[in-house]
């Protein structure tokens, strides 16, 4: 039980920082793309393992997440960011389905990555969570002022000498690593709700950027904990309940705001 609370705390930190970055970067859909491209990576690792080649899912998921983040950025240049991310999303899902179609006996394993299960978290997953939390917080803390400038005023930041391409790459890496680490617990399909909805609520009521992340983190923690506890009473996935609560909270927050 302690490890679950510990994991929920770390997920709340990671998801709130990365979710806020994606929301303020006006690319919240990137979270969904990264989650599904990570799923394609997981599908490839399952495909290989079904043929006897056992490899760590995390490595494949991370590589695919980074690759498809780059593809999203590349596609965005052709038309616009929404179209670029959407096509990248479709491509990653297509690959995931292809890998799964030619794999053998992996349906139950992929289910855990699609919808996530908090109580299936292993020690290795917790290690990845700790490692990602440290990396995300270090990068975010180190580049905080530049990130704030870039998110508020990308042109002004570039004109003041900040290497915005490098900074944007760091942001995408933070988002990609966070999503990959979290999908084991909350699932690729539901990661979007856990990352984006609390961040959107936090943004609406906060008086500064740090406060926005703090609010988002608290909401995420509450949603995940509630989902986990409720799942003991009713036989429904904890991450589904968490995502449901997060979405409803967002709805209430927007009604209250308006």
């Amino acid at each position: 039980m302690d490890s679950i609370f510990f994991s929920i705390t770390l997920i709340s930190v990671i998801a709130s920082v990365s979710g806020s970055l994606s929301v303020f970067r006006r690319a919240s859909f990137l979270v969904a793309t990264v989650a599904h491209s990570a799923l394609a990576g997981v599908a490839l690792s399952l495909l290989l393992s079904s043929y006897g080649l056992e490899l760590d899912y995390f490595v494949f998921a991370t590589l695919f997440a980074i690759l498809f983040s780059a593809i999203s950025t590349l596609f965005s240049k052709f038309y616009n960011i929404d179209t670029g991310i959407s096509i990248s999303f479709a491509l990653s899902m297509a690959l995931a389905v292809i890998f799964l179609s030619i794999s053998r006996n992996v349906s139950t394993k992929i289910w855990a990555f699609l919808f996530g299960e908090l109580y299936l978290i292993t020690e290795k997953d917790i290690f990845y969570l700790v490692m990602t939390t440290v990396i995300v917080l270090l990068l975010f803390g180190f580049f905080y002022e530049k990130i704030l400038f870039f998110l508020f005023d990308p042109e002004g930041a570039e004109a003041s000498g900040i290497n915005v391409k490098l900074l944007d790459t760091i942001l995408v890496l933070i988002i990609a690593l966070s999503v990959v680490t979290v999908i084991r617990s909350v699932g690729a399909v539901l990661a979007y709700a856990i990352f984006v909805a609390p961040s959107a609520v936090g943004k609406t009521f906060a008086r500064n950027f740090k406060q926005s992340i703090l609010y988002s983190s608290t909401i995420t923690f509450f949603c995940l904990l509630a989902g986990f506890l409720i799942s003991f009473s009713i036989p429904v996935s904890a991450s589904a309940i968490s995502a449901f609560i997060a979405s409803i909270l967002y709805l209430f927050a927007m009604i209250r705001k308006s």
């Binding site: 303020f24 006006r26 704030l148 998110l151 508020f152 005023d153 990308p154 042109e155 002004g156 004109a159 003041s160 000498g161 943004k203 906060a206 008086r207 500064n208 950027f209 406060q211 926005s212």
Partner: peptide, 21 residues
């Protein structure tokens, strides 16, 4: 050179929904 220049961009390029004082 950029240290000597200040640039004020068009307001439409700013993320004005960012909670920033």
């Amino acid at each position: 050179i950029l240290e000597m220049i200040s640039y004020v961009p068009q307001k439409s390029t700013l993320s004005t929904d960012l909670p920033i004082t």
